[in-house]
Simulated scan of single mutants.
Amino acid sequence: MSLEFAQIVAALISFGLGVGQTFYYLRVRKIFNSLPIVFAEIIGSRLLHQLDLDNKDLTQAIINFKYSYQRNEHESSSPVLRGFELFPSFDYERALVKKYRPGDRATARVVQGRSVEAYLEVAPLSRASYSVVLLLVVFPMVLVVLGYLGYTESFVAWLKYHVEFWLTL
């Protein structure tokens, strides 16, 4: 397999991952907007801030709310429908706690499955996730262009030099 072909394959895979993540998020958001709406009452709202088992910082909004669906009372503690987040937004979690205070009324969307679950909103992609998508789309294309122009080896040497330099700091 030639170097140019390998670069093109890597670029296409990265491009597909970046665009795929965006389309997946848009699909989840579209499905969420089509779900039945119920009125919910917020009964508890707090910000959980602790270290998990791997000593990673964990910040999450814990918002309890009750709602009625098909003449049955339900309670939920999952305020946000979340996708996979490589880089969660801690500011978003703090904003959720400020937005949904005990005693407030809000609209929720109901998901029917094995059990009935409701969510207040869909978590947006974080800025870091947008940056990763941009890198997954743009960087491989730059590599393909550099490979086509014959600058791949000099670019790899330049990149290696700068990575080693920053790692020594």
Score class of each variant (00 low, 15 high):
residue 73 E to Y: 01
residue 57 D to M: 08
residue 74 H to M: 04
residue 94 R to E: 13
residue 41 E to N: 05
residue 119 Y to A: 12
residue 56 K to V: 09
residue 59 T to P: 00
residue 66 K to H: 09
residue 39 F to N: 15
residue 52 D to G: 00
residue 93 E to P: 07
residue 116 V to Q: 03
residue 61 A to F: 00
residue 86 L to D: 01
residue 124 P to G: 07
residue 48 L to G: 06
residue 105 R to C: 04
residue 49 H to R: 14
residue 84 F to N: 12
residue 115 S to K: 14
residue 97 V to Q: 01
residue 124 P to A: 03
residue 27 R to S: 13
residue 117 E to R: 15
residue 25 Y to F: 15
residue 84 F to K: 13
residue 74 H to E: 01
residue 73 E to D: 14
residue 82 R to F: 01
residue 122 V to L: 09
residue 60 Q to E: 15
residue 51 L to R: 13
residue 101 R to W: 00
residue 40 A to I: 08
residue 37 I to P: 04
residue 80 V to K: 07
residue 48 L to E: 14
residue 48 L to T: 06
residue 75 E to F: 05
residue 101 R to T: 15
residue 31 I to D: 12
residue 61 A to L: 05
residue 95 A to W: 03
residue 24 Y to C: 05
residue 65 F to H: 05
residue 87 F to E: 04
residue 39 F to I: 12
residue 52 D to Y: 01
residue 41 E to L: 02
residue 103 G to N: 08
residue 88 P to H: 05
residue 85 E to D: 11
residue 37 I to M: 06
residue 88 P to R: 00
residue 74 H to D: 05
residue 80 V to G: 03
residue 95 A to G: 04
residue 123 A to M: 07
residue 72 N to H: 12
residue 78 S to T: 14
residue 47 L to C: 10
residue 38 V to Q: 05
residue 36 P to N: 01
residue 73 E to S: 14
residue 52 D to W: 04
residue 33 N to W: 01
residue 111 V to Q: 13
residue 39 F to Y: 12
residue 30 K to A: 15
residue 110 V to Y: 01
residue 42 I to M: 06
residue 90 F to P: 00
residue 120 L to K: 07
residue 113 G to H: 03
residue 24 Y to K: 14
residue 80 V to S: 13
residue 32 F to W: 06
residue 82 R to E: 13
residue 47 L to D: 08
residue 125 L to D: 03
residue 114 R to M: 09
residue 102 P to K: 02
residue 50 Q to G: 01
residue 62 I to V: 15
residue 70 Q to H: 10
residue 115 S to F: 07
residue 29 R to V: 10
residue 41 E to G: 06
residue 123 A to C: 10
residue 86 L to E: 08
residue 84 F to I: 14
residue 83 G to S: 05
residue 96 L to E: 11
residue 122 V to H: 06
residue 96 L to K: 07
residue 99 K to F: 00
residue 57 D to I: 06
residue 88 P to I: 02
residue 89 S to Y: 04
residue 41 E to R: 13
residue 58 L to T: 11
residue 25 Y to E: 05
residue 30 K to M: 12
residue 81 L to R: 10
residue 96 L to A: 09
residue 114 R to P: 10
residue 26 L to Y: 08
residue 106 A to H: 06
residue 25 Y to M: 08
residue 79 P to E: 07
residue 109 R to G: 00
residue 108 A to M: 00
residue 38 V to T: 09
residue 114 R to V: 10
residue 65 F to W: 02
residue 85 E to K: 09
residue 53 L to V: 02
residue 99 K to T: 13
residue 110 V to S: 09
